[in-house]
Simulated scan of single mutants.
Amino acid sequence: MTRTAAETSTPLPPEAVHVLDVAHVDGDVYAVEVRGHRLLVDQPEETGGTDTAPTPVELFAASLATCVAFYAGRHLHRHGLERAGLRVRTEFTMAADRPARIASVRVTIAPPPGLSEQRRAALIAVASHCTVHNTLHQPSEIGIELEP
């Protein structure tokens, strides 16, 4: 028998649980509600979707990129440095075998112009500790179940 995270962990207080709701919209389009924000996902036309929104996998990679950007940006701000010009690019490849998954991810930080080598190195160190990056290195328990 497989145990879910809820069965193996100490119960969390309700305010510690983050809830996202996903609902079917049309075809391969789904909407996710996050704290009152609504995001859509779809699939490319070549895989049967209508390409009206990013795929879930693209949003996964975007989560990593935006988390890295946030950590880098906060580091710059904390040290009184300008964030203007900060950019992050994420490139990923899909695995050729099964199960379906991302095989590799490359994250590149373009720091603001004029940043010293020491500050550039610090950006890498700080950004590599973002929450999404940490979760990929220390995977969380995932339970998938049917609603009663």
Rank of each mutant, 00 (worst) to 15 (best):
E145G: 03
H37V: 00
A5H: 09
G80H: 12
I124V: 14
E147M: 07
L81A: 14
V88P: 02
Q43G: 01
V88L: 06
A31D: 08
A31Q: 13
S9N: 11
E147W: 08
E145F: 12
P14R: 13
V57S: 05
H37P: 00
A16L: 06
E45K: 12
P139Y: 13
A127G: 06
Y30Q: 11
P44R: 09
L76W: 07
I144M: 13
V17H: 08
E91C: 02
A16R: 13
E82M: 04
Q118K: 12
T4N: 10
R3F: 11
T90P: 00
V29P: 01
E7F: 03
G27I: 02
H24T: 05
P112G: 08
I144F: 15
D26T: 07
L39A: 09
A6T: 06
P139W: 13
L40A: 14
R119S: 12
A84I: 02
R89I: 00
A84R: 15
E82A: 14
V57H: 06
R120N: 05
Q118F: 02
A31I: 00
L115Y: 05
E141G: 10
A53K: 05
R38H: 13
H75R: 10
V68F: 10
R78T: 07
L81H: 15
D26I: 00
P13R: 13
E117W: 02
Q43I: 00
P54F: 03
